[in-house]
Write a protein that binds this DNA or RNA. Sequence first.
DNA 1: CGCTATCTTGAATCCCTTCAAGTCGCGTGG
DNA 2: CCACGCGACTTGAAGGGATTCAAGATAGCG
Lengths: 242, 242
Amino acid sequence: MTFVFNEREKCGSCPIRHRAICARCDEDELTLLEDMKSYQTFEAGQPIIWRGDDLTHFASVVSGIASLSRTLEDGRTQMVGLLLPSDFIGRPGRETVDFDVTAVTEVTLCRFQRRPFEDLVDRVPHIAQRMMEMALDELTAAREWMVLLGRKTAREKIATFLEMIVRRETVPTQSIQEYQLPLTREEIANFLGLTLETISRQLTSLKKDGVVEFIDRRHFRIKDLNALHLASGDDADGGVIV
Amino acid sequence: MTFVFNEREKCGSCPIRHRAICARCDEDELTLLEDMKSYQTFEAGQPIIWRGDDLTHFASVVSGIASLSRTLEDGRTQMVGLLLPSDFIGRPGRETVDFDVTAVTEVTLCRFQRRPFEDLVDRVPHIAQRMMEMALDELTAAREWMVLLGRKTAREKIATFLEMIVRRETVPTQSIQEYQLPLTREEIANFLGLTLETISRQLTSLKKDGVVEFIDRRHFRIKDLNALHLASGDDADGGVIV
DNA sequence: CGCTATCTTGAATCCCTTCAAGTCGCGTGG
DNA sequence: CCACGCGACTTGAAGGGATTCAAGATAGCG
């Protein structure tokens, strides 16, 4: 990571400058954000904020991965989203947080105090416009995940999950690429609405069927991308990629 | 329904004036929308737009209920949301639609052509601000539904569904109120990620347990609101209402 | 009055979970 | 250096909740 998170770092050189809520902002608007922002880093596994907590700050994920989840009273937990760099935490107009936010890896946030930021959202149209776009994108993603949770089999769920990782990280030039699972088996289970044992079983099943191969527990390669897509249940036509 | 959907009806007297995307607009901004809008009505059961179709218009639901759903190639379908009056259809910036939209009851839409409306979103901050709010609200609702789909049992799912109807339609003054199921058993099943037989079985189970009673297949009363809430699985403390 | 769509109920099956017992890998300390 | 311990993971066997398949009941409507 080349970017150093000094408090007074210029937004212009920020790695998420063109994807976060500031994406549409011009230089003057960026200055307003620069004057407000502060950075905070969380270690892997640390809670960032709990459901029901007072929302003192809004924040953008600058680096690392955080999870959004809800756990029922008896311990069942469902992850409802992964927060990647540029993703936003908090909902203008609300005082508290609706879901638990946890650092999955080490996470650095770019934070803004609630009141000043809410004022800014009302004053700077570029921010609301960008947040609308981002919220609508996340809404579509959430709805697609609802289809997975409600209707897909265990095998289809895992295949979809692996495919998501592959789609996000594939570098066009590289042919036989190695991917990393950002989550433990248990976290994957909570993301897919399954148990960790089922995750384990289905991963070995996909391995036996020659779809993926594992370098170690957290690193894998795709041996048959087309079979992976077929297993995801998203298309009947097989969605031939190449 | 007292409101008549004449093409040149004034927005000021529109039933969704203060909840839809126009909620924050002043009189001048409303005039811009008035000049663009046209109404369209769909009969119950009719498709409004299919996944992949060109999005020629954005629209707000003025009256009636529509569903958002996705069906996998082998016929499994998952409803990902219900569109009620004031809810919005379409995503500025996208050319096509991500989910099937179907009229559940008779539905009337207030429509805007894509290009002019997209320009308006960029020019009128009040619209983007309101759409951001609405998208964030829907996002939270979608995520809560993900918890239901991923982690709740059939009984909990149905109890949650009934509770949702009750919360939405309860009139404070009325004590023993009658509620309507807006969906068939099959539609409920597709909403909850279950089969219609399971819906039927769980409804009779809740009936046997004295939680609800049915006037006919589409109308019910709550006999024990507290038991209903307990059955929803959302709180351990039972969330005593009264 | 009967037709058809919707819904209910029953029985068998299955996929995933639950419970339980290992295995693997890695850092720590003897 | 290797034993130890612990967390993460795998694998097996049994059980259960929801589905599937199949009748039958009910209600709305011509």
